[in-house]
Write a protein that binds this DNA or RNA. Sequence first.
DNA 1: ATTCATTGCATTCCATGCTATGTAATTCTA
DNA 2: TAGAATTACATAGCATGGAATGCAATGAAT
Lengths: 143, 143
Amino acid sequence: MSFERNTSAGYLIHHVARLFFEGLRKRIEPLGIVPGQFPALLALWQQDGQTQKELVEKLDIEQATMANTLNRMERDGLVVRKDHPTDGRAKIVYLTEKARSIREEAYTAAASVNDMALVDLSSEEREQFIGFMQRIIRTYPKS
Amino acid sequence: MSFERNTSAGYLIHHVARLFFEGLRKRIEPLGIVPGQFPALLALWQQDGQTQKELVEKLDIEQATMANTLNRMERDGLVVRKDHPTDGRAKIVYLTEKARSIREEAYTAAASVNDMALVDLSSEEREQFIGFMQRIIRTYPKS
DNA sequence: ATTCATTGCATTCCATGCTATGTAATTCTA
DNA sequence: TAGAATTACATAGCATGGAATGCAATGAAT
């Protein structure tokens, strides 16, 4: 059998994901954040004050990864963790003023990466592309 | 402005890439290899005996990343590095018998991940999807 | 031929993903 | 209600990505 890198979906996706990731990194660096923090920030900008469990479920990221990312975010002054009022095991994550203040700029940066990477696609094609990925995620075996 | 995770191309790609990456990991683990080694292996299966520079350019991976990956591959008995006959700076990377022997199984594993992830897409849609990614890579600013 | 720039690689540091494991708090069950 | 199971989180270890840096070999310019 032969196997072509450039016609393998998995190979291409990995490559494209790196392009987006590094593109985002460059644009948000001035804001004092990094790409791995973006998912948590998006979720918290939408609704501040969530438990780690809620973030993990919402973002489909492993619990350990989230804990480590939140450690770095706390270190960088983006979030604070407070004890849950009734569940002694849980922590609630809140954005700091610093994180709240960069919201719009971060949105702009992310939109700009998307636009830059997708220049060659028509809006119709972009919608198809996004639709394909949503379907892949939806139909991928849960575990 | 608002920003929706599930309609952001970059966000979705990152998510899908993780699905593929971890799916591949599970399937090739029995072969004694990991997903990060796949690009180098594909290139070397296609043509054994390449310099690191050639691999870096072909695979669009940073030199440092390649060097580290090759270190692990050498440690795992997948490749050996030999001195370049005329250029004292260069090393040529060769597959070991072990790496050569798992080629077909690795192809099968990779194809299987692709099939599994893309079940919901028709063959026409798969081609479109792949075409979109090829165009994104091609039009992405070189640096 | 000597000096300077470039090239090919290695190494270190850090972010980000995962798995495995530990701990404390909570909940369920007999 | 005591003991067992579960849950929420933390931590350690490893792979894989990039940036920065160092070094030795090569090539170019005078």
